[in-house]
């Protein structure tokens, strides 16, 4: 191999948790730095190259302010592969909870001088604006999956990350289903795995950090919740959570509004 592949880490509107996951790859971090040139990762290094070209660009965060659109298009133009990391970048993130609501009123709630603020009406995923080569789910993303994406891209194969339900992970782990054993509302059946069934492991229902799985028949699950006595306002909240901006969840929550 000649030059090391160049990696860039970029941030839009986010909590930094996903890029922190990269720093959290303690055991692998130095090994990774041997394999790739970490060319732009402002959270970790003062050597930045915001305008360079990248073999892989990891993009965290959602698009929620006008300047971020230009930034994103520029990153796309300079990157061979653009990978979104986390729920903000793939589904708009928790801040997408403002979508469809009166942003001006929101600004006035938070800011003393709203006239200083410039923001877009909606917090949107990266894929709404530019082509995305791979979307890594999670709020935050999973460390192992991040390493899998990077290693897979390095050898040129598709990441071995399956679009399966949390249920399957939960059952592999031998967790007793919280929905069946005590009617605890759990989004696991319609949520993309990857967290290793974290919430059920901690005896609580999944709240959808990894977003909807493919074929997420949310209405069938909502029907179950309703049979167990969940009222519409709660159904709306349940599907309008951390990944409430994702199509399947958004549609379902809207249905109960």
């Amino acid at each position: 191999m000649n030059a090391k592949p160049r990696l860039g880490v970029f941030k839009l509107a986010s909590c930094d948790g996903c890029q922190l996951t990269l720093l959290g790859c303690e055991d692998a971090l130095l090994a990774l730095a041997e394999r790739v040139e970490i060319a732009h990762f402002p959270e970790a290094s003062s050597r930045t190259d915001a305008h360079g070209t990248f073999d892989v660009a990891l993009v965290e965060g959602s698009v929620s302010a006008p300047f971020q659109l230009d930034e994103l298009r520029s990153i796309r133009a300079r990157s061979k592969r653009l990978v979104t990391i986390g729920a903000c970048a793939t589904a708009g993130g928790v801040q997408a909870l403002r979508n469809g609501r009166d942003v001006r009123e929101f600004i006035e709630t938070v800011y003393a001088s709203p006239e200083y603020i410039s923001t877009l009406d909606a917090s949107t995923p990266v894929s709404a604006h530019v082509a995305v080569d791979y979307e890594l789910r999670g709020c935050p993303i999973d460390k192992q999956q991040l390493l899998e994406v990077i290693t897979a891209l390095l050898v040129g194969r598709r990441p071995e990350i399956r679009d399966e339900s949390v249920c399957l992970e939960c059952k592999r782990k031998g967790i007793v289903c919280v929905l069946v054993k005590r009617d605890e509302p759990c989004l696991g059946p319609v949520t993309h795995g990857g967290c290793d069934a974290l919430c059920p492991t901690f005896d609580r229902g999944c709240y959808g950090c990894f977003g909807p799985k493919e074929r997420a028949p949310t209405s069938a699950l909502a029907a179950r919740f309703a049979r167990d006595g969940m009222v519409p306002v709660e159904l709306v909240r349940r599907f309008r959570g951390i990944t409430g901006g994702a199509e399947a969840f958004r549609t379902e929550s809207d249905r109960h509004e």
């Binding site: 059952k171 074929r215 699950l221």
Partner: peptide
């Protein structure tokens, strides 16, 4: 199919 969640619970258990 309108009721099934395709969640794999049945096959797992």
């Amino acid at each position: 199919a309108s009721r099934c969640l395709s969640c794999s619970s049945c096959t797992s258990v």
